[in-house]
Design a protein around this nucleic acid. Sequence first.
DNA 1: GGATGTTGGTTCCCATTGGATACTAGGGAA
DNA 2: TTCCCTAGTATCCAATGGGAACCAACATCC
Lengths: 123, 123
Amino acid sequence: MLHRPDAFDARCPTRQVLDRIGDKWAVLVLILLEQETLRFNALRRRIDSISQKMLSQTLKSLERDGLISRRAFATVPVTVEYSLTPLGRTLAGTVAALTQWAEAHIGEVEDAQRRYDRGEAAA
Amino acid sequence: MLHRPDAFDARCPTRQVLDRIGDKWAVLVLILLEQETLRFNALRRRIDSISQKMLSQTLKSLERDGLISRRAFATVPVTVEYSLTPLGRTLAGTVAALTQWAEAHIGEVEDAQRRYDRGEAAA
DNA sequence: GGATGTTGGTTCCCATTGGATACTAGGGAA
DNA sequence: TTCCCTAGTATCCAATGGGAACCAACATCC
């Protein structure tokens, strides 16, 4: 890879990382795992409305990216624990800033939406 | 809205903001507009591989959320300028931290992917 | 003077994706 | 016996994303 990171070039690997952030489920999983190690169904219960398919898909790709680690125990029924890797922990910190922005500015965003929708209705 | 922001509840408005971040095109537009005001086709030329449809869709929803502002001039052909609002500027700053993370850690992510894929191939 | 290119989009169609539901195995509890 | 638990997978359908064509009104090229 000779060219410097340029997120606006589709071929750039940085874009891959950005696309991963662009996955709402991945973001929610990172936030939860930052606080504690969790099992598959524990994650499912906390993330309202995620499907089993999307959760297992999300976990698999986060594991492939080295952001979370998976440990299975031969209990009955089988137990699987997911936790952040050190790399994942650095990303989770950055992502947390985003959720703080969201919680701080959601009111302004909603106001803007209402203004926009009123204008559209008038036009 | 009585309940406190809880991004894990699908009904929560904070989730809407998170979903907006979860739009890779929106993120790229915010980064570009942080540096300068740009016209429609200027944005299109800089964001490699975005389609006209997705760009106009992205700009429309960013405008609705009060993050960017649109100004049209009655020239021939018509000129349309997009720029960040003050609200959008605060979000762009936060998002920039994310792209810095991406550029700093892309190597580690790629290493992890190669390790994972070798393991999969072996299994 | 016709073809082409410019502007900022919209519309149509198809491929990919996301989500709901059902199913797996191997037991424990009612 | 039937249901529930675990952590997923398989299947099907609806929604979304992207490519290409099209729009008006003019400037420039040949």
